[in-house]
Design a protein around this nucleic acid. Structure first.
Lengths: 196, 196
DNA sequence: CCGTAATTTCAGGAATATCTGAAACTCAAG
DNA sequence: CTTGAGTTTCAGATATTCCTGAAATTACGG
């Protein structure tokens, strides 16, 4: 591997991170190289930069494609595949979240629902059952929230993020003008209590 | 392993998920068992339920403690350590996010900043440098948002999540009454454009 | 201080995951 | 067709991670 120091540091770090995220170190490094490159690269250029075997790079690229993290490009009069990452970082973030949801959250939701269905009611497992149900509700809440915000245009999303918890103040204000969201009232909580 | 089917399904799934998240399958399963258990368990009870070696369980519990995911309990007149997970699921979520941030995001931020410092300006690496800078900004934005919302009480947080993107409508309304957050105006965007 | 139950450490073996080179496949140009 | 550059597949080699049992350590009750 013979890369400019800036790139090298980034690539190595990204490889480490990748290996904590269910993609291999190699795949992480390939992605990092593409991410920093000014133009699309073909497999041999990646081999040259990282010193992995040709087949390893091929596998890695295939995996990145299965994650939708990489775009295929072609140059006129050149048969080789060139690969690039999206210019827009937010698009990358969206893809990452989407794919991880698909692979981790959705199967978990399925499992939790099935688990609850198959359970004989009136049972020694009362506590376990309750916890599974709670877990399901929590993940469903988060999922619905995500389904909602992922539709926002990037501008809007960035606005919202930049606002952070100040949103809270804005809502209090609004609330005084036009009751809209459900809020705690003196007569009792609108949101169910946690078991405790 | 001889567990009620409800528990068994959950434990196995959790183990799988764990192994995609940088904790081992074993540690994931140990956590799952504790999570579903009605009372705190000691190491031998976990050995009995999961059939791992005693030392493996010991290591696993140690790792869970290092993640703050598990609480130590003692029973009067019993010298053994008993372990439990917090009752409140939201507390678990908060811990998870916090620890992952500490281990993944914070070092990444450090790396990105150092990388940018050490770079000779005016350079062939202009593009790579720009991408690193963009990445840093994006992560900083997300981090600030997180720092903001993590302080919210759980009730408030749940409210906000339940509201989802409807928050957007609320803000538009508010905006018409009292300009507060930065918004796009006809005279130009308040949020910097993405390079494109 | 002992004795002992509980826990932790650690070196090596077992199980996984990763990487490689050689061979197989694809497909477009001639 | 044939050819050959480009790509993928795959069985085995390598490296990494995980798990275990034996031995060491800890710390409490007496």
């Amino acid at each position: 591997m013979d890369l400019p120091p800036l790139v090298q540091t980034f690539v190595l770090h990204f490889g480490e991170m990748g290996s904590r995220w269910g993609i291999s170190r190699t795949v992480g490094q390939i992605y990092a190289v593409l991410f920093l490159s000014a133009e699309p690269l073909n497999a041999d250029q990646i081999v040259e930069r990282l010193g992995f075997s040709r087949s390893n790079v091929s596998m890695g690229l295939k995996e990145l494609q299965s994650w939708n993290l990489v775009r295929l490009r072609h140059l006129p009069g050149d048969r080789r595949d060139y690969f690039a990452t999206p210019e827009d970082l937010w698009e990358i973030v969206r893809t990452l979240v989407e794919e991880r949801k698909k692979r981790e959250i959705d199967p978990t939701l399925t499992m939790l629902r099935e688990t609850l269905m198959l359970t004989p009611s009136g049972e020694a497992e009362r506590h376990a059952q309750a916890r599974v149900a709670e877990t399901l509700e929590l993940i469903e809440l988060l999922t619905r929230w995500y389904d909602d915000v992922r539709r926002l245009e990037t501008d809007r999303l960035v606005q919202l993020l930049a606002l952070g918890a100040k949103v809270q103040k804005a809502l209090e204000l609004k609330d005084r003008i036009l009751p809209f969201g459900r809020r705690r009232t003196p007569s009792g909580p609108a949101v169910p209590e946690e078991e405790h």
